[in-house]
Amino acid sequence: MKKLLDLYYRLLRFAITLSMAVLCIPVTMQIMARYFDFVPRYIWTEEIARFCFVWVIMLGAMIAVRDGTHFDLDVLPHGRSPRVEGAIRLFAHTGMLVVALIFVHYGWQFVEFGWYQTSEIFELPMTYIFIAWPVTGLTWLAFLGEKVAEDIRLLRGHALPAAGDAP
Rank of each mutant, 00 (worst) to 15 (best):
F38S: 09
A15I: 00
M126P: 02
T118H: 08
L155W: 05
K147P: 08
P77S: 14
G114R: 15
E120P: 04
A21Y: 10
E150V: 13
I16D: 05
M29C: 11
A49H: 03
K147Y: 00
G114Q: 15
W115S: 15
L97N: 10
Y9Q: 00
V56G: 07
T136A: 09
V99K: 01
R80H: 12
P26N: 08
L11T: 08
F103C: 08
R66H: 07
R34E: 07
L155R: 03
L18A: 14
E47M: 01
A49I: 05
M126S: 09
G60C: 01
P26W: 08
C52R: 05
V22K: 06
I129Y: 08
W133S: 13
V148D: 06
R34T: 07
M1R: 10
G79S: 10
H158M: 10
V56N: 11
T28C: 01
L12H: 08
L90S: 01
F130W: 14
A159M: 09
Y8H: 03
I25Y: 04
L7N: 14
A87F: 10
E123I: 00
D151F: 00
F110E: 08
M96F: 14
S19T: 14
W133G: 09
A21N: 09
D165C: 00
F71Q: 04
I57G: 13
V99D: 03
F51N: 04
Y8L: 00
D6C: 04
W108D: 05
D74P: 00
H93L: 06
T45A: 07
L11S: 13
I63E: 07
E150I: 11
L97F: 08
T136Q: 05
A64P: 03
H93C: 09
L18I: 15
E123P: 10
M62C: 02
Q109G: 14
G137W: 11
F14W: 13
A149Y: 14
R41A: 12
P26Y: 08
E47V: 02
L76A: 04
Y128P: 07
L5A: 01
E123C: 03
V75S: 08
V75E: 05
A149L: 13
V39Y: 12
R50H: 05
V99T: 10
Y116S: 15
L12D: 06
L11N: 07
F113D: 10
R89A: 09
P82N: 01
V148W: 11
R34H: 06
L73P: 00
A49W: 04
L7G: 14
E146L: 07
